[in-house]
Design a protein around this nucleic acid. Structure first.
Length: 362
DNA sequence: CTAGGGTTAG
């Protein structure tokens, strides 16, 4: 598909034509579905599943799981439920991965209690939850600020799984992040100590999380201490870590520090990403360098490095806040030209801008 | 299949 630019249906046709019953493996159809989702051909994946059904050549639960997982990754939760129900209506039964996807979908919708009910439905169906199941519920609890429940689950996951499942680094990182986000760095650090005690080393994400937590709390000193510590342990600060620190340096108006770090990032060949560009855009705007922010935007958009609305939203919002509708309009135009879809924030900012300039009808 | 970073409305 990649090399020859074939459409999913072309590949499928070839597979069906060369399919020789018992001498062939139906896993090849699952592989095609996976190829489609990895390729970004989400609708193609679904069409393949449907076509095979009509040819009474069914894909397995693995392909459905793969497709359902892709929908969650794209945040198409409504479609996820629709497809899940469809799959069940064809008589498939959920395996552990399907259940995990259901738990994940419920957590994404903040339906934490239902996610926990799903855990018990798994037990009833004799499908044993694994560490991923627990981690998703624990992270869901953390994201909703319910650290008490998250901690309770960590303590009880052994018993709840009949001694089969123990916390791993993902579990601990979720809890650490939860405490950082509610501003309780002290407890976040305590959790890290506990994690070390049970023999799980801090990884790149642990450091990334704690660095953001300390920066949020205003202790940039701790931030640099942690950066050094991670390097000493052989972990190289990646794009996420640089983005975090640059973001918080701009926030305290340390332009020089932010610039130095950006140069360091380029020297060390750590690739900037969309987060970097929106952080720079915001940092330049809020510190009074709007012209530079616009110039940066023009540079990166020409190179097709931008795939989401963030940077434009930041600029549009900045223009609108300073009642500069004339400055915001071309940015909206630029979004359309480059295939970026204006979202709630884009329109919210523009409506606010018109409101400020007393042009209610607009 | 799960964990860290970027946007709006006082």
């Amino acid at each position: 598909m990649c090399v020859r630019g074939l459409a999913p249906f072309d590949v499928l046709e070839g597979l069906i034509n060369s399919y020789e019953g018992d001498d062939s493996s139906p896993a090849v159809f699952d592989a095609l579905v996976r190829a489609c989702t990895q390729f970004g051909a989400t609708d193609g994946a679904y069409e393949v599943i449907k076509k095979l059904r009509m040819d009474s050549c069914w894909v397995t639960i693995h392909a459905w799981n793969n497709f359902l997982g892709q929908l969650l990754k794209l945040n198409e939760i409504d479609r996820f439920w629709k497809v899940y129900k469809e799959m069940i209506s064809y008589g498939y039964s959920e395996n552990v991965n399907t259940f995990n996807l259901i738990v994940y979908a419920l957590c994404k919708e903040c339906r934490l209690l239902e996610a926990i009910s799903e855990f018990y439905r798994m037990l009833k169906n004799e499908i044993w939850p694994n560490v991923v199941t627990f981690n998703m519920i624990i992270d869901g609890a953390c994201k909703m600020g319910n650290l008490e429940l998250a901690l309770k689950l960590v303590r009880k996951m052994g018993v709840m799984s009949g001694g089969c499942v123990r916390p791993n680094s993902v579990t601990y990182n979720c809890i650490i992040n939860g405490f950082c986000k509610i501003g309780n760095i002290a407890l976040a650090e305590e959790v890290r100590i506990e994690m070390t005690k049970v023999g799980i080393e801090s990884n790149e994400r642990t450091y990334g999380t704690l660095i953001d937590g300390h920066a949020r709390g205003g202790s940039l000193e701790e931030v640099f201490k942690l950066c050094n510590e991670m390097v000493e342990r052989g972990l190289i600060p990646n794009t996420v870590v640089y983005n975090t620190v640059i973001h918080w340096l701009y926030n305290v108006e340390d332009m020089e520090g932010a610039s130095l770090l950006l140069s360091d990032m380029i020297d060390k060949r750590i690739c900037p990403d969309q987060y970097t560009y929106s952080i720079l855009t915001k940092g330049l705007c809020r510190n009074g360098y709007v012209t530079e922010a616009l110039r940066l935007n023009n540079q990166v958009i020409g190179k097709n490095l931008i795939e989401d609305a963030f940077s434009h939203n930041i600029l549009i919002n900045y223009m609108c806040r300073s009642k500069n509708i004339a400055g915001a309009k071309p940015l909206l135009g630029s979004m359309f030209v480059h295939g970026l879809i204006p979202d709630l924030v884009t329109y919210g900012s523009l409506i606010d801008g018109y409101w400020r300039t007393a042009r209610m009808e607009m």
